[in-house]
Computed example of a mutant assay.
Amino acid sequence: MTREPVIRLRRVYDPPDPAADGVRVLVDRLWPRGLAKAVAGVDQWPKAVTPSAELRKWFHDGGSAQEFRRRYEAELAEPGAVAELGRLPELAAAGPLTLLTSVKDPASSHAAVLAELLSG
């Protein structure tokens, strides 16, 4: 019997929760503004699974969430992203995996799309 992976979404600015976070993975392309690396408690930063700069700009310029998701999933299918993406389920299977982002609402962000894909 395999157990369901525990994948959490949190803001990187929230303090780490050692009892619940497990492995903390930053899923933003840029380091969060004003946050010291020592304070963030980030274990991994796989930039290949983050939305490209072009996709982020397109979305912030008024792109739709549905089209963003389609384009982001296409980026995740590219060879560099596939390799990095393949490591995340292994981390989730070993214990909690927390996807960190600087966006104000992680549940409505690329991190949620990534969590859904990882949850399968």
Rank of each mutant, 00 (worst) to 15 (best):
A48F: 08
S108A: 15
W58L: 07
T101N: 12
K104M: 12
A65Q: 13
V103F: 08
A53H: 13
A93E: 01
R87W: 03
K57R: 14
P18M: 01
H110L: 05
S64G: 07
R11L: 07
Q44W: 14
E67K: 10
A19C: 00
P79A: 05
F68Q: 07
L76T: 03
A81N: 09
P79H: 05
R71K: 15
A48V: 06
A65D: 03
A77V: 03
E84P: 04
A77D: 11
V27Q: 13
Q44M: 14
R29V: 13
A115K: 02
A74N: 07
L85R: 00
R56F: 00
P15I: 02
Q44T: 11
E73I: 05
R8C: 03
P46A: 05
D17W: 09
R3M: 12
V25H: 06
L55Y: 08
T50M: 11
T101F: 14
A65L: 11
L35M: 15
E90H: 12
R3F: 07
V103K: 13
L117V: 09
R8S: 02
P18D: 09
L118M: 04
P51F: 05
L35N: 11
A20C: 09
A65P: 04
E67P: 10
E90P: 07
E78M: 09
L117A: 10
L9H: 09
P15T: 09
A77L: 06
L114W: 04
H60D: 00
H110C: 10
P51D: 01
